[in-house]
């Protein structure tokens, strides 16, 4: 594989269990050095996709290449270039943080310094603590540390910040920015859309086993979904107007009635765009109406 080939290449990926179709023709590429977020509701097929790429699951049909290798045939040489942070881990953890990282660092030919990795995930005070004595969020940081200790070219992060407090999440983001700066290619799944917005260059939205949209963060959902919203309040209640010219709308409001109350001009966040996309493809909209 050359530098210009995509690190991850997926075409018409299909996965069926018995009679049910979990993935139905998913296609995307991830370029070298890129951070790609795979978004979607629970059960949409994110983890199935990521586990097929990691070599844990077989695919039913389609074409997949990861670092130039078909994951079905990926050996230890191939795994040496991957970093995998799985979605759920519950190991008994009868070893300390440093022992565990030292053990895993030994599997790789050019690992990062163990103490540097421990510090990078903010566990320097817990280096000699048994993993089973750590809190859920701290264990999650050990998972992340184990994912990066081998200096991977491609890092899989499956909901990496579950259980993190806001501060830990911020420092995790900084860590990912550093890895990006070093040229690491990253595939991320997350339920935190601010996290995806913060970290990724491109995103794909997967629903019901299909990729319903894929693109750079400023394109995904289409231009329509990004039209800014002007909100304000007056004697007759709350108002909201979607417009490509929010400045003009505000100027008009001021001209008509002076300073509007609770004035807001909001550009839809990734979360707004995502929720609009998801509800557009939602098979059962009744539930949504009930909850309003």
């Amino acid at each position: 594989m050359t530098n210009s080939d995509p690190v991850v290449h997926v075409r018409n990926l299909r996965k069926t269990y018995g009679g049910s179709t979990v993935l139905d023709g998913v296609s995307f590429d991830i370029e070298r050095g890129e951070t790609f977020a795979l978004l979607g509701p629970n059960g949409a097929g994110k983890s199935t996709t990521i586990e097929i790429l990691e070599g844990y699951r077989d695919r039913s049909d389609g074409e997949v290449s990861v670092l130039g290798v078909d994951p079905r045939h990926g050996g230890t040489d191939w795994k040496a270039h991957l970093g995998i942070v799985l979605q759920d881990t519950g190991e008994s953890g009868n070893v300390t943080v440093r022992e565990q990282l030292g053990q895993f660092a030994g599997y790789y030919s050019n690992p990062r310094d163990v103490d540097e990795v421990i510090a990078a995930v903010g566990l320097q005070d817990k280096a000699t603590t048994l993993i089973r004595r750590l809190s859920g969020g701290q264990r999650r940081r050990v998972d992340v540390a184990l994912g990066i200790v081998g200096r991977p070219q491609l890092l899989f992060l499956d909901e990496p910040t579950t259980g993190f407090d806001p501060e830990a999440r911020r420092s995790f983001w900084e860590l990912i920015h550093r890895l990006k700066a070093e040229g690491t290619t990253i595939l991320l799944t997350t339920h935190y859309l601010d996290e995806a917005a913060q970290l990724s260059d491109r995103a794909g939205v997967i629903m019901g086993g299909r990729l319903i949209d894929v693109g750079t963060l400023d394109r995904i959902g289409g231009p329509e979904a990004r039209v800014p919203v002007v909100r304000w309040r007056d004697a007759s209640g709350a108002h909201e107007r979607r417009t490509d010219h929010p400045g003009a709308v505000v100027a008009e409001l001021v001209r008509a009635g002076g300073e509007p109350e609770h004035l807001e001009v909001v550009r839809p966040s990734l979360e707004d765009v995502y929720l609009a996309l998801v509800s557009e493809h939602e098979p059962a909209p009744q539930e949504l109406e009930l909850s309003r």
Partner: peptide
């Protein structure tokens, strides 16, 4: 508990 899964994703023979 996921120990083997993690090892299976690492280059440990």
């Amino acid at each position: 508990d996921g120990t083997l899964k993690r090892l299976g994703g690492s280059p440990l023979p």
